[in-house]
């Protein structure tokens, strides 16, 4: 109860009109109530808190450095677009080599995403949910290909799955599967490099979700598999999508491990990046055209992920 004659202004209630105006209007400054409220203790008007206006002044030198960074990152792309042989683009795009490389790239990168999902999601689940000895070691090993130079990955793959490799010898001799210099080999190389991106993203998603939803599912009679399929997966869908997209982008651009392990055979292992590199040796226009196609694909992925990675504020 207040003894003051002034009714309490809406400043105090969460349902107040002033606060609602802030929320719905999306402005930073609250609409000032017509009269300042009276303090219950002193009876004097309460000083309304000044509208929060954070100083957003960057440390000295940050602005020019940031401008340089942006220029550095955009200039090459601008050059690429500027150099594009726009007139002959349709012809260049329909050249048989281009389409073959594009098709192969899609097959290989989607194959890599498929393998990464199949093996990477269970792995991420184990890393996120189970405590076991050596978990940190397993995680480090799994994430190693992210920082490993891809060429080194290619050499390592060759030593493991090459004809005379550790596992390759057995695969070749007993099962009759030869991986190097085959499309399957290219998929394997891309998976090796790209899967960690999926694992790390999905693991973060699993750690971030409220596990009590899984408890709720269990109390409703859902077994472990049903719970995973009907509750866990939908709840981590954003992470799963982001992880898959990252993984796919990485696989699509993969060069070093693929050329080292799978070689550069047109139609079998010559993916877009390899084709670009090769074209640059004798036909710059083709190289630029292929590069533009990949730039377009990257942009599409980026726009698709915008909401997930960069929540626009």
């Amino acid at each position: 109860m207040t003894s003051s004659g002034t009714p309490l202004t809406p400043k105090h209630g969460p349902e107040s009109a002033a606060n609602l105006a802030v929320v719905t209007g999306g402005t930073l400054t609250a609409e000032r109530p017509p009269e300042p409220p009276l303090s219950e203790a002193t009876g004097r008007p309460v000083q309304p808190a000044p509208p929060v206006r954070r100083t957003r002044r960057a440390p000295a030198g940050f602005l020019p450095l940031a401008v340089v960074a942006v220029a550095f990152l955009t200039l090459p792309l601008v050059a690429l677009v500027a150099r594009a042989p726009w007139g002959s683009l349709p012809a260049a795009l329909s050249a048989p080599g281009v389409l073959t490389a594009l098709r192969l790239s899609l097959i290989c990168s989607l194959g890599a995403v498929g393998l990464s999902l199949l093996f990477g999601v269970p792995l991420a689940w184990l890393l996120a949910r189970l405590r076991f000895r050596g978990r940190d070691v397993v995680r480090a090993v799994v994430l190693l290909p992210m920082v490993l130079p891809p060429v080194v990955g290619g050499v390592a793959l060759l030593l493991a799955f090459g004809r005379n490799g550790l596992a390759g010898r057995w695969l070749d001799g007993l099962v009759g599967i030869t991986l190097p210099f085959s499309t399957a080999g290219a998929i394997l190389a891309e998976t090796f490099v790209a899967m960690p991106f999926l694992v790390i993203t999905v693991e973060a998603g699993l750690r971030g979700m409220d596990r009590r939803y899984e408890d709720a599912a269990a109390t409703l009679g859902a077994g472990r598999w049903t719970t995973f399929r009907r509750v866990t997966l939908p709840l981590i869908a954003p992470s799963l999508g982001a992880g898959a997209a990252l993984c796919w982008a990485r696989a699509l651009g993969e060069f070093g491990a693929t050329i080292t392990f799978a070689g550069n055979l047109p139609g079998a292992t010559q993916t877009m990046p390899l084709a670009v590199y090769l074209a640059l040796q004798n036909n710059v226009d083709t190289a630029v055209t292929l590069s533009l196609v990949m730039l377009a694909i990257s942009l599409v992925v980026l726009v698709g992920l915008r909401g997930r990675w960069f929540p626009s504020r």
Binding site: Y213, A217, T219
Partner: peptide
Amino acid sequence: PTDQRPIGVVFQDYLLFPHLSVLDNVAFG
């Protein structure tokens, strides 16, 4: 295990599955 017990639980903050409609939440069990 929990999923084989003849129980029903109402959790403190309800834990309704956010990705399912109200009807599908109730139909889940």
